[in-house]
Amino acid sequence: MKLIITALRQEARPLIEKLGLKQDPASRKIPVYSSDDTLLVITGIGKLYAGIATTHALHLVGNPDDCHLINVGMCGGVGDRIALGEAVAIHKIWDHASGREFFPDMLINHSLQEGSLGTFDEPITTANRPILSCDVVDMEASGVFQAAHLFLAPHQMLFLKVVTDYLDYSTEDYAQMLQYYEQSVDDWMPVLEQDPQLDKPDPVLSVGQETLLTNISEGMRLTETQTHKLHDAALRFLVRGGEDLEIIEPNLNVQPEHKSLRNQLFDSMIQTLNQ
């Protein structure tokens, strides 16, 4: 599942259109749009809202192991190294308020520029800017990272920011800034659409095999420790090349009358799997 996080409705709009996402009417406070393989949330401005909405989105996704998060949005360029309307893949996020640094893994190749980003609690302009050692600034990324990192590994996150100003803007410039963003979408959309299935292995035990183990365990009234050992031995057996668990199936309908018989049967089952 692809999870896209944007701060503003205007940032989300081109993505909703291109990906054919439909609004989830159940999520009213935090706007959510989705398709079969994508979920997009609009967080609102600021890292606190960003963190809350990211957590909400990950809760909706359910299984974080299959999730790839992308935070997309507009940002300010600190210098003019990155042109207006150009997208940057972020390799370092620095939270101005706490001074902490966060690093998404940079594993997947792409054609975009890379840079470092500072997240601030208030809009940064030439009038109030401190001395900055980052390339771009925003108001959400550190909140998104911190919330997401509770559930996701660093390789499951990508931060894409489009430079729409050089920290010298007024409200009249907003339409132009938005235009820079919208015009850049085609440049970075392929990166967003990449399907980073990072060789996630299939589970070793199939649903049927899990059920078989549960049924044996319940039928034989195994202790919790024995159940765990049986599961572990079955896993080892299959990883070592065992074809299936047929060899322990005869135990499926066995209901030993007393503990010592159960323990004997259990030991013999483990021995069989360990061979």
């Binding site: 690093f103 893994d105 594993l107 990192h149 590994a153 660093p154 390789h155 990072l198 060789d199």
Partner: peptide, 15 residues
């Protein structure tokens, strides 16, 4: 701050 982050996947990073 980078080497000891929580939740890293050793084998994926090895790629």
């Amino acid at each position: 701050d980078i080497f000891a982050r929580s939740g890293q996947n050793f084998q994926i990073q090895k790629r």
